[in-house]
Design a binder for these strands. Structure first.
Lengths: 180, 180
DNA sequence: TTGTCTGTACGGAAAAAACTGTACGAATAG
DNA sequence: CTATTCGTACAGTTTTTTCCGTACAGACAA
């Protein structure tokens, strides 16, 4: 086994690990392989480069590089004299994690919060309604308590996302200082 | 619209929000609907209850309640005199979030760490090899630096998971005190 | 033991997602 | 202006995932 091959082995192992975990970022494994491939290239790559490297269609490269860009894992690069779009991996993985975490959970919080708010007011109204049977009111009361609990939970989750977005999380879990 | 119906509306809205976000726990929407349904029931439910409530097959109920259990979102309950298996939702959503977070990311860290470790030693060996061309060695050197960076990142991620598992996260982002 | 009931493994059907090739709009070069 | 080149929308195909019905193993009752 020559040097080139051993180098590729080392790269492939890590790339495969990325591919198998990229689902945590909501992306399919192929996007992970694409990312891994880009990660080990010094130069920004064009869609055609990727097509050649991975042996997949250019359309696939286009759609998944877009997904990677949306996920803030990849960004466009510019280089004078090159007309094609160039892409490179963003190199701050800590920020990448934070971006993923905040966008995913912020969306979840917002969706749930509005649903909870609406249902709560609807149930409160129901409690005051004379025409509603006592039996239904009891169930509504129980539901309200449940909703108040999860409302608090989502409020906590929102503050958790804040803590990541504002980098307060690094106070609790600091990044290892290189100088140590 | 009568009271019963309005109650069901309120429940359905929240359940649908759950269904649309349960993918964050790695589960399909149907499992989310199942969870939502269970959430609004006071009593633990059997598989047959769920089949009736959701109009889905018993096999589906079985597989997805297992997935929910594995995800620590649901647990088995016992009730004397009932031979069938009973299930209820776990009521600590904070712990549920932590369980999901830790299992998912711990697995990711461990997979990556071992891949990185292996590839690093392979590349180090390659650097010391006389027969390997200088050109390849340069690429290997660049790869090593990249791998050292992400090794630090995963070490940080591991500590982050610790912070959740050990509940240190509640120091940074406290749960709202009910008495306030 | 035999009969009944419960949960799940398994194979196939239905639904969803990923991937490809063609075709076209936008941008640039000449 | 025309010709070329790039990226992506779209429709169709392939692959993967989800869901169902049957059948069976295990537990319990009698």
């Amino acid at each position: 086994m020559d040097g080139q091959e051993r180098l590729e082995n080392a790269r492939r192992r890590v790339t495969e690990a990325i591919a198998q975990n990229i689902y945590l970022y909501g992306l399919p494994p192929a996007a992970g392989r694409q990312y891994g491939m880009m990660f080990f290239h010094n130069e920004p790559l064009t869609l055609d480069d990727m097509t050649e490297e991975l042996g997949m269609s250019k359309t696939s490269m286009s759609t998944s590089v877009r997904a990677l860009t949306d996920a803030k894992l990849v960004e466009r690069a510019w280089r004078r004299g090159v007309r094609k779009d160039l892409y490179k991996v963003k190199d701050d993985w800590y920020q990448g994690f934070i971006d993923m975490f905040t966008t995913k959970w912020r969306k979840s919080v917002s969706l749930h919060s509005s649903a909870i708010r609406r249902s709560l007011t609807e149930l409160e109204k129901l409690l005051k309604d004379e025409t509603v049977s006592e039996e239904v009111k009891e169930m509504a009361q129980a539901d309200i308590e449940r909703l108040l609990y999860i409302r608090d939970y989502y409020e906590w989750l929102d503050r958790l996302v804040d803590a990541f977005e504002d980098h307060d999380i690094f106070d609790l879990v600091p990044i290892k200082d290189e100088s140590e």
